[in-house]
Design a protein around this nucleic acid. Structure first.
Lengths: 139, 139
DNA sequence: TTAATTGCAAACGGTTTGCCACGTT
DNA sequence: AACGTGGCAAACCGTTTGCAATTAA
């Protein structure tokens, strides 16, 4: 018996905001932005709705390197690249290779449902500024 | 000015333990095991030493899906596959394709230092038992 | 000697949750 | 009316850290 979710302006605003950016924002960033329109909105609401949206397949959770999650409303199969210096995350316009799943399945015995490819490096801006130190990894 | 690390039996025991398993253990698992030999050892020591070993390149941190980290003393370039049902993590014996880094570099403008490929699916055991529910993801 | 390391325990911080009023259906 | 959702604040829990005592070099 699955829950019958209702429409709320808070959740709609959250999804709109997430769809309006390609910055793979954190929950904190989303919360801060949403408070501009809904000053009373709480963090709990943000987290609960992110969870609902993820459950509905409308949002991806990128638990991808730092201590906090990032979220992505682009639910198509695509890859990411993150900067080890400043922590920014970008989409990587490489074609998704779903055939890889079959290969992994054959080798592992798992029933493979998907895969993730994340690249790491230094983004163009950080290459210029030569700043170091990724927040949260101690590097 | 880098820190001159010393040899301690706690850190040696931690690395030995991590090298003795392919289960990509959590800090909690390591701590529990180490207490058998060193009843007074604290969690702080485990975390601090994991951090030192990671910094020395002797251990990889797999921040790969759950809410807590996993660690791997196999620092060669290799891929992982994790079960969405029980959370186990296995190595995936697929050849590492370092050429991919160059491709990502060209497309993104990043200075690419590496990449990670993680596959997701249901492990052989969970396929048999048909158990569901990945701890920590709400799935 | 000296500075890295430890055990202990408190603090940290992102995330989750209990409670009750409110809003959607 | 029924029940999902919101706001608020406390709880949660994996991880980090301050401190004084040890210990490796």
């Amino acid at each position: 018996m699955t829950i019958q979710h209702r429409q709320t302006k808070q959740r709609a605003a959250l999804l709109d905001l997430l769809r309006s950016t390609k910055s793979h924002p954190t929950a904190a960033w989303l919360y801060e932005r949403l408070r501009a329109a809904y000053p009373a909105m709480s963090q709990g609401t943000v987290y609960r709705n992110l969870s609902v949206l993820a459950e509905q397949g409308l949002v991806l959770v990128l638990r991808s390197g730092s201590t906090y999650d990032r979220f992505d409303a682009d639910t198509s199969v695509h890859y990411h690249i993150m900067c080890e210096s400043c922590g920014r995350v970008d989409d990587l316009p490489l074609s998704a290779e779903t055939f890889r799943n079959a290969e992994a399945e054959r080798v592992s015995g798992y029933l493979v449902t998907g895969h993730r490819i994340d690249y790491f490096g230094i983004c163009p801006e950080c290459q210029k500024s030569k700043k170091g130190g990724f927040p949260g990894t101690g590097t």
